[in-house]
Simulated scan of single mutants.
Amino acid sequence: MPLIAQLLFVTLLALCKSGAAAVKTLPVDKHARATSTGIRMTYYKPGKGSVPTKEAKLLNAQYPNKGEITLLINVATPHQGCYVFLFKEKIISETHHGGDSSDVYGTLPNGTFGVVRRDYNEPYTTTIKNLYGYILAEDHGGYVEKRKFQDFGNEVYFPEFLYDYCLVDDADGNGDPEFYLTYFGLSDGLDAKPLKVIVYSSSCPKAKATAYYPGGNEDDVYYVTYDDSWSMLPKKIQQRANAIIKEVKDKGLIDI
């Protein structure tokens, strides 16, 4: 990066008083990257039981009763100020299953009908949770909400963020960040299961691509749809979102 750009970025960090520097004590799984246009992103995934930093405390105070911070992305731009891409999950209930055995009946060696074996049921947990996502602009030591996402789980619907694909980029190279929010909606029944990539950008307030995974009906096929706002996105942003959808599919990350 040229010296002038480096000086500009250092100055910008100093102005973003509650930006990337303020959250550096958040523990574990931190990584940073930058775009060719000088946008810097720092990703934090807080560990369980960790003591919140000043920034985390401010964010939890602004969004109380929304569960725990699960991902925090600090974004510093050369010309558009600083942003926070915040993700939270609130667990509504957890139900534990399995860990026991089931009797299997059949014909015994003596010709009678009875229990021929006992099969162990592997334990698993069903978690109902609410998902929240926020794009916030930093302003005078506080935060101004720019975008809001929420999706609520229930007894037959289990949404999950795909955190490796919740990210910030500048695919079209215009110097403005795009925010990509990716999540999957698992549900009971034979309905197709949606993987959604929501894109927030200066080109379009919100656009969405949805990949539908077959839910079990014989004639179901995998397919992708786009909302009416999709055409407003520059081609390179569309390609970036489609690359997320393709990579999730190619890696077999959705297991129904």
Rank of each mutant, 00 (worst) to 15 (best):
T11M: 15
T11S: 11
L12P: 00
L13D: 07
L15Q: 15
C16E: 02
K17E: 07
A21L: 13
A21Q: 12
A22E: 10
V23K: 12
K24C: 13
T25D: 12
T25I: 07
V28S: 10
A32M: 11
T35S: 13
T37A: 03
R40H: 10
Y43N: 09
K45E: 13
K54V: 14
E55A: 13
E55G: 12
K57M: 15
K57A: 13
L59S: 09
G67V: 09
E68D: 05
T70D: 04
L72V: 11
L72A: 04
T77R: 06
H79W: 06
H79S: 13
G81L: 01
C82I: 00
I92M: 08
H96S: 09
S101W: 09
G111W: 09
V116H: 12
R118A: 01
R118P: 04
D119W: 04
Y124T: 11
T126I: 15
T126G: 08
I128P: 00
Y134G: 06
D139L: 14
G142W: 06
Y143C: 06
V144P: 03
V144D: 05
V144A: 11
E145A: 15
Q150T: 12
E155A: 15
Y157R: 13
E160I: 14
D164I: 05
D164M: 05
Y165T: 01
Y165F: 14
Y165P: 02
G173N: 14
G173L: 10
G175N: 13
Y183C: 04
F184K: 00
G185F: 04
A192F: 10
A192D: 11
K193C: 02
P194M: 11
K196D: 02
K208C: 10
K208G: 04
A209K: 01
A211G: 05
Y212K: 09
Y213Q: 00
G215E: 14
D219M: 13
V221F: 09
Y226L: 08
D228A: 10
S229T: 11
W230K: 01
M232I: 10
K236I: 02
K236S: 13
R240C: 03
N242T: 06
D250V: 11
K251L: 12
I254M: 05
